[in-house]
Design a protein around this nucleic acid. Sequence first.
RNA 1: GUGACCGUAGCUCAGUUUGGUUAGAGCGCCGGGUUGUGGUCCCGGAGGUCGCGGGUUCGAAGCCCGUCGGUCACCCCA
Length: 408
Amino acid sequence: MTFRAPKGTDDILPPVSRTWRRLLLTWEDWAARYGYELVLTPLFEATEVFARGTGEGTEVVQKQMYTFEDKGGRSLTLRPEGTPSVVRAFLEAGADGILKAAYWGPMFRYERPQAGRRRQFYQIDVEYLGSREAAADAEVIELGYRYLIDASVPGLSVQINSIGDRECRPAYLEVLKEYLESRRDVLCDDSLLRLTTNPMRVLDCKICAPKLSDAPSPVDYLCDACTTHYGEVRSILRELGVPFEATPRLVRGLDYYERTAFEYVATDLKAAQNAVGGGGRYDGLAELLGGRPVPGVGFALGLDRIVLTLGDVEEPNPLDLYIIVTAGRRREALRFTSELRRSGIRADLDVESRSVKAQFRAADRRGAAGALVIGDEWSEGRVVAKDLASGHQEIIRIEEVEAWTRRL
RNA sequence: GUGACCGUAGCUCAGUUUGGUUAGAGCGCCGGGUUGUGGUCCCGGAGGUCGCGGGUUCGAAGCCCGUCGGUCACCCCA
């Protein structure tokens, strides 16, 4: 073995890739049902898009970006997340009104790999741009929930919170800082640093949080507008039948979030990285990128993590018919297989001219429902058709093959 | 960025304790047993620079150092 995939990246091959394919197909279905349209943006952007969008203060921007200079001297960065790109694209297109965007693809962050944390990882994303309404928040949260349930993620819990907006957060931060100053003695080194850079994140610290149970929560300092918004989001979610847990200590790691913040947690997952998705409202992001105000709310789901929660169940590569080629009938077999495929039957064959025995074995391993022998009977317009589950075999006319297959 | 554990066949692992001659098993893969018939069974085959580099030694998969990689946790987040 000479080359390996770079550290923290994965090759996704069968049979595991079958699960990925299924997850992506069902995702396309759910996105379409909720009226979200495909939006594709570049995998890299001007570094500034993330520096200003994702936020200079975030760990992601400070330590985790794959940044490089191209031959024209531009500083570019492989996207560590998708939201700033979509907002940038919306602004660049001069779009107005509402855009409901759905997409999926690889994201890149330079980190030490572990279970559920890769350097190239895959997200399923949704952005609802152009509305400040709580109904938009609720719809986005509902869509993610319905999809994850359909994907059968075990032990799913939806946790939501409101972290205030530009009106009320500054006052809350003052109160929080004051409180944290008074508890300096119990804070860990990291939290002492965060006290000045991003005090809300201290509430997220695994070491300190248990000792700070009496810390002020953002929800208790919301302005009237935020309180109303948060109340509406919750009441609509109840109306829609989406179970959730109000989690006052939930805080997000990206700077642009305000008001609604939420996470999808796979509580059954033993790995430390059990947040299978997360998101929130980002009404200020467009302005951070130098554009006009465009409100928005969205989520990102970690595909790799979803797959992780599903365990090692192997999915089949469904096949209706395996075509068995005998000596001298190769051309006929190729042509007939093509006809079957065009009529909607999942058919495959062996191009290696191996023994009939080997081909039957292959048919069995592929889990094909039936096998067809293209042999001497072909000259009379007939083929041997074998039901591989029962072992029953008969000679049928070529025109009957399609109907015979559908009965299997 | 910090720490712990681990690298032997495609996969899962034995062999390292006490260095000793040709490095093993199961599964998987390919072929034969039926020159047109799968799953079970029997037989055979392919496949390994023992992660890589250096050192100690008459001799290293095994001991020492380094390095790369993997896994998990911290941190961070999807």
